[in-house]
Amino acid sequence: MSVRPYPLQFKPEMKERIWGGRALERFGLQLPEGSIGEGWMIGDHPNGTTRVINGELAGKGLDEIRQAYGREFFGSRGFSEKNGRFPLLIKLLDCNDDLSVQVHPNDQYGGLPEGELGKTEMWYILDAKPGAKIIYGLKDGVTREHLESAVQEGRIMDCLQEVPVEAGDAFYIPAGTVHALCAGVVVAEIQQNSDTTYRLYDYNRPGLDGKLRELHIEDSLNVIAYEGSGAARMKTDNTAPGSWLTIAESPYFLVQKGVIEGVSQLATSPESFVVLVIAGGSGKLSWSDGELALNAGECFLLPANLGSYELAGSLTVIRSVVP
């Protein structure tokens, strides 16, 4: 059965985390009980597959849409070459407490589970309490030997670089970058479709089950980019209305921030779907067959064959494609 393309919205998969809270309720999201750290907004992964809540495909999982409509919807570049899945995972994160200090492997690392990808990602800071910070990379001159000794001696924090953050900051985090979100930030995350994380340090705190969470010291030491991973950060609060600012660029995603005041005419291409994360404001999304209201915290997947579309209102939008 043929389905005319339209913007897809999904029911988020909510994940309880020891460091989570209730901040995602600010976006009108329905949260289960507990400390909710992650909302998987668009996902096609064994650990979380989102289902469409609007239009003709309502009730279908992203994996089912992939199987049924393939490159027509996702575009010629819109697949992982390694496992055939949707190539990105889109999350909203509520960091009510510090996350573990961690690092992700690249696609070539031999220790990856079968069918799993490496993980390059980017963060856009939606909200940050005064004094909020993140851990972002190693201090200059830290080698594997230095870091291994620091881990054994319980002084790993001496090796890590802390960076203050504010709403509107953007961080590119290639595989191999040591990092940790810290308490007081709400983040939109665009990443490779992977759930592989190696923990270096977790503050000696118990997990949700009351036991210490597993650390992955050897894998972490193996995959860290000691000479630099290519990580980059930028302020984006001066983005001019009507323009699109590139805030992260990798082989896996191109992410831009747009500020809409009025109307913006756009279009998809046959090469890639478009993901829209509404970072702030409200408005509407129109295309040839209809329109949808837009509100902060909502995420939409625009099929590659949608064609022309229009954003209208007063909006801050994070737009992602596969380059």
Rank of each mutant, 00 (worst) to 15 (best):
Y203K: 09
S100Q: 06
M157Q: 14
D98Y: 11
S243K: 14
L8K: 09
L208H: 07
G283A: 08
V52H: 00
I224S: 01
Y69K: 05
D63V: 10
P164C: 03
A232D: 06
L254C: 02
L301Q: 05
A150G: 01
G184K: 11
D289G: 09
A267Y: 02
A132K: 01
R66S: 08
G262E: 03
S272V: 08
L57Q: 03
P206Y: 06
F273E: 00
E33Q: 15
M122C: 15
S229M: 02
K257G: 00
R144H: 10
S320Q: 11
Q265M: 12
V151P: 00
L112R: 05
R213I: 13
G242C: 12
Y201I: 06
I135F: 05
A58M: 09
L57D: 05
G21D: 11
Y309T: 05
K129S: 14
T239Y: 01
F253M: 06
L302H: 06
G115F: 03
K211Y: 05
K15E: 14
T239H: 07
C95P: 00
R213L: 11
N222Q: 14
I260H: 00
E64P: 01
G70H: 10
D195R: 02
W40I: 06
K129Q: 15
L31P: 02
M122S: 15
E189G: 09
I217P: 04
E13L: 13
G230C: 09
I134V: 15
M234N: 03
I134P: 03
I135Y: 01
G290P: 06
S282R: 15
E56V: 15
G34Q: 06
Y309V: 04
T316D: 09
S80K: 05
S194P: 11
G141F: 02
I36Q: 02
N54S: 07
H104M: 09
F300H: 06
W19I: 08
L221Q: 11
S2R: 13
F74N: 04
L99T: 08
Q192P: 10
G131Q: 12
G281A: 10
E25N: 09
